[in-house]
Write a protein that binds this DNA or RNA. Structure first.
Lengths: 179, 179
DNA sequence: AGAGACATGTAATTGGTTACATGATTAA
DNA sequence: TTAATCATGTAACCAATTACATGTCTCT
């Protein structure tokens, strides 16, 4: 079976959630997957085209009233099979988070400590905003997707985001105090 | 002032730590920055060449006995200036950690729960190994770099890695119990 | 002789963003 | 009419890995 990159599987997976167009996919990504997966239109549209060529999705052009035409993509049984096959493969290695703040802190010796503190304060604030966003997404899922069978899993991934963000905020505070 | 990508600044920074060759840089990265920044030789060597062209580093070929010749790179004052200028720029946005396990869990509905549990157990185990690695690096820094003025900052970045990894392990455990 | 550490480099390819380009429809 | 939202797509470019290619020196 042909293999694809993870962003392709992400698109395939999103097509199982009720999203049907490239636009829909981007919306869901920006709203729900943004903390651990993110792709641009420049990748979504060509990928959908490829999936159609490979027979993993079908395309139909849908007219809507009040809105421009759109292309709707539906998973084929082959598409679902490819998705499920990917889901069961174990991950081969942990992701490396490229963290610019840590990179700068690593070379912190070359900076006065007040400058380093400003970096850390800025980082902490951004993390706190992110935590607020996660809480807002959580409320939104609990409110609008209560019966959605996907909701349970979405909340698990959000919990991950929240826990890791809290840990990072705590680290910021501890490091600010130590500098 | 010309701007570079973060991997270039990482190389510039590493050149202040006593590492002088492309090989040295890779070694240090794999030993100490591997949890938040990682690059391959295919990027290191061309970048060093570029830095030399731009006058941020000087190159000399050094003969060693018992080992092959190597090229040693030294920061120029211009190079140090570029590094310090980058260090003080605030980060513009938080990094997005692309997490394959979370991506699969997000679509967990399409898998039997025993398969999901296997994924989470595997992930947890890898995280625990990572935590051990961080502890080993910490011991190594405390043992061999006690007087190194960089050590303080290296330990800060390690502390981040440890805290975030512990939070992720806790999340794994909680999610395994919830599924 | 062969394995392993040390050492440097390029070419092909992949993956991805950004900028560009277009256009429908509605509401203010 | 103009801003906002909805909608699709391509081209140029950048970043990065992987595979390939070469070679030294030491130790067993």
């Amino acid at each position: 079976m042909k293999t694809y990159n993870n962003s392709t599987y992400a698109i395939l997976g999103i097509l199982t959630t009720g999203c049907k167009s490239g636009y829909d996919i981007k919306q869901l990504m920006d709203r729900s997957l943004t903390h651990f997966w993110k792709i641009s239109y420049g990748q979504i549209y060509p990928t959908l085209k490829q999936l159609a060529t490979d027979g993993l999705v079908t395309v139909t052009t849908a007219s809507q009233d009040g809105k421009p035409d759109r292309k709707e993509y539906d998973l084929t049984s082959k598409g679902l099979e490819v998705l499920e096959n990917w889901l069961k493969q174990p991950i081969e290695q942990l992701p490396v988070e490229r963290n610019e703040v840590l990179l700068k802190l690593f070379f912190g010796r070359h900076q006065p400590s007040d400058k380093t503190l400003i970096q850390l304060e800025g980082y902490k604030q951004k993390l706190e905003e992110r935590l607020q966003t996660y809480n807002a997404i959580e409320q939104s899922i609990r409110a609008h997707h209560e019966k959605d069978p996907d909701a349970r899993y979405w909340l698990f991934t959000l919990d991950y985001g929240k826990r890791v963000t809290v840990a990072a905020i705590d680290w910021c505070q501890a490091t600010i105090e130590a500098i």
